Amino acid sequence: MSIVAVYFVASPLQYLAAQQIAAHFEPGARQVLIWYKRSLAAIVRPARWDACAYMPWPRWDPLPGWFGRHRRLRQNVRLVAELAGRCDELHLHSAVFDTEAINYFLRALPRACGARTLSARILPDGVISIRRYPLTPAKRLAQHLRKLRRLAAPELDYTTFAGDRIGSDASFCDRIYVLPGLPHEYPAAKAVTLPPLAAVAASPVRGAPRRALVIGQPLTGFGLMDSAGMLSASEEIEQWLRSRNIDQVLYKGHPKDAQRELWRPGYEVLDLDEPLESWLAHEHFDAVAGVRSSALLFAKQIYGADTEVAAFGWDRIRFKSDAEKRDISAVFQACGVALL
């Protein structure tokens, strides 16, 4: 029986997870990688996949002319079907299935590939994956409206479902991949814990300079903090590193952290050509600091007790709700990240 595993990824974390799934959970399957964020092209290694391609997101990159979004959806189906080829069974991996760019593949791809069966499997998406996001009545209605596309294109038949918007409760989902050490609210029967996303980190060298990493993110740009709160957090980080007798501080900004909001004079700015999560695996730091970046969690998982990892300014972060603050705080603390 021929099996094809398709991975729809939009972040370095999802890409690393897809690599581990392909290596440990999809033996013998044809491995097809589809990325839909252009920036991921820099980290994709085509030689590791049987087939791979960039897929434009229909809403943000429609084809020119009338009904460009609709035609892009149909073109994307043809693209992925050609890469997957004929098969008996399909395994679709995505971080979420309540989006037309991915959902239509649940019915369209088996028909295009001649597959008899299909299983949907959910990729981890960092801190977002620790909570459930129930579909609202409005979103349920939107699902049914999307089914109208089949009147013009029979292959675009939207698969409706209830419960969690990522699809964890849906009948088509048989597996939900979760990260080691991170709590979640998914059904235990479906949850599968991935092995570590990176190799064992480099060990500290006796007598080497004490190094620290500051992980930036667009705090004011994303409305997570006001300017005063952001400045206070950056000063607190600098003081904390000084108290740890750090000799060298590296700064890794977020791709959308154009202002380098947590950067301070004397920090060395990193420009990496690979995901931060995998780069951490072959570097050692005595301390890692930031605000609420999920990279802090992975740093703690990789380095363990040898490295202090701390998150600053949580009393000034604008959370969406008290429940979100409580849940995310619990995750950071459970992973051993100090909230300062």
Score class of each variant (00 low, 15 high):
113 C>F: 12
177 Y>R: 08
172 F>P: 01
16 L>W: 07
288 V>E: 11
189 A>E: 15
47 A>T: 13
330 A>C: 13
208 A>W: 11
153 A>V: 13
87 C>R: 11
340 L>T: 10
2 S>D: 14
226 D>S: 03
254 H>W: 11
236 E>L: 10
155 E>D: 14
23 A>G: 06
208 A>I: 09
105 F>S: 02
209 P>F: 02
340 L>C: 12
278 S>R: 15
264 R>D: 01
251 Y>S: 00
190 K>W: 13
110 P>F: 01
33 L>C: 12
144 H>T: 08
117 T>M: 04
41 A>R: 15
137 P>I: 04
5 A>N: 01
179 L>Q: 01
123 L>M: 08
107 R>G: 07
208 A>C: 12
272 L>A: 07
202 A>W: 04
173 C>A: 09
130 I>Y: 13
243 S>V: 12
248 Q>S: 02
178 V>N: 09
70 H>I: 09
22 A>R: 05
98 D>S: 05
299 A>S: 07
286 D>F: 04
78 R>H: 13
307 T>A: 12
197 L>F: 01
330 A>Q: 14
11 S>E: 03
29 A>H: 05
43 I>K: 08
320 K>R: 15
72 R>T: 04
98 D>L: 00
259 Q>W: 07
81 A>N: 08
213 L>Q: 11
97 F>A: 06
3 I>M: 10
201 A>F: 03
87 C>Y: 14
150 R>C: 15
143 Q>W: 02
242 R>V: 09
329 S>Q: 13
35 W>C: 10
155 E>F: 10
100 E>I: 06
270 L>A: 06
54 Y>Q: 09
68 G>R: 12
195 P>H: 06
197 L>N: 03
81 A>Y: 03
61 D>V: 09
220 T>D: 00
152 A>Y: 11
151 L>K: 08
109 L>E: 00
64 P>F: 08
37 K>A: 14
57 W>A: 07
40 L>V: 13
101 A>Q: 11
228 A>E: 01
42 A>H: 07
68 G>C: 06
9 V>T: 09
255 P>K: 04
129 S>M: 09
240 W>N: 03
45 R>G: 12
16 L>G: 03
312 F>I: 05
295 A>G: 07
70 H>P: 05
247 D>P: 01
13 L>H: 04
251 Y>P: 00
227 S>C: 01
88 D>K: 10
